[in-house]
């Protein structure tokens, strides 16, 4: 499990580095090297670490451990073929982590990042809708059962394409520099993570790497089925690059527009699942 955890962290960070590189090349900038996010994580691990005088110390430190803990648990659940509902829960609880990061320091920048994180909770509804659409066909939410179902009936990508689109939007809402990245908007400095420096930021980088890997792996297992490892990694790369194109070519929305669009998508997806439920 330790080996898988390390691989997931480093590969997830590499994907985030590639994400930055692709965005830069589309915008005709040289961009950072693809391993920049890995270097960030290593650099922060050895930088001076402190806790702001105004912070709630236990929460300030504890929330970093919770962030790493929940995504480690998510990786374990995906690899062991556990319930998709647990992944959904962890994805939603990541909001609390962001909220905790933002509120724990006392900084207004972090606080606004945290508040924006909570108000963009509409982005979770498409994930719930995807889960419901999958449950209608597979009659199970265990990832192992979903993979087994696809071996018999073909990839769910072709059975419930709109559910795949919904989950793609969920992935997009978690990618940095995207249209829905209002929690890290530049007017908030670095948003909810503004005050977390040194080893705390390194922990956050580890969490980001793990989160990226787990969400992409879940997307592939749920919509394409069980594939050889190299195919899964290649698909992860392709999905990341497609997300980078969307992020590079679309402006960051204002908080109001971001929530409105996510709510509209969520409404459409609820309608889609209602129709699926009636038809099936």
């Amino acid at each position: 499990m330790i080996a898988e955890l390390l691989f997931a962290t480093f590969f997830g960070l590499l994907l985030l580095g590639i994400h930055r590189k692709v965005i830069a090349r589309i915008q005709r900038r040289p961009g950072p090297p693809v391993w920049q996010e890995i270097l960030h994580m290593l650099k922060f691990s050895f930088k001076t670490t402190w806790v702001p005088a105004t912070a709630s110390t236990t929460l300030f430190v504890g929330v970093v451990l919770v962030a790493i803990g929940i995504w480690t648990a998510a990786l374990f659940v995906v690899l062991s073929g556990g319930s998709l509902l647990v992944i959904f829960a962890i994805y939603m609880l990541h909001k609390i982590v962001e909220h905790g990061f933002g509120l724990s320091s006392g900084s207004p920048y972090g606080k606004f990042g945290g508040v924006r994180s909570v108000i963009s909770a509409a982005s979770e509804i498409p994930l719930m809708v995807s889960v419901a659409a999958i449950a209608i066909f597979t009659k199970s939410l265990m990832i192992s059962d979903i993979v087994a179902y696809q071996q018999s009936y073909g990839p769910l990508l072709f059975t419930v394409p709109l559910a795949a689109v919904a989950m793609y939007v969920v992935l997009l809402s978690k990618m940095p520099f995207g249209p829905f990245s209002i929690v890290e908007s530049k007017e908030l400095v670095s948003g909810y993570k503004t005050e977390h420096f040194g080893v705390w930021r390194a922990g956050l980088e580890i969490c980001n790497g793990l989160k990226t890997y787990v969400l992409l792996l879940t997307f592939i297992l749920v919509f394409a089925g069980g594939l050889p490892l190299w195919t899964i990694l290649l698909l992860m790369l392709l999905i990341t690059m497609s997300l980078s194109f969307v992020c590079a070519l679309s402006p960051m929305l204002s908080p109001y527009d971001s929530v409105t669009i996510q709510t509209l998508i969520a409404g459409l997806m609820v309608l889609y699942v209602a129709i699926l439920g009636v038809v099936s």
Partner: peptide, 14 residues
């Protein structure tokens, strides 16, 4: 447990 053991933050305001 965090609530039990931690002191609250002191919010910075202008």
């Amino acid at each position: 447990v965090f609530v039990l053991v931690s002191r609250p933050e002191r919010q910075i305001d202008i």
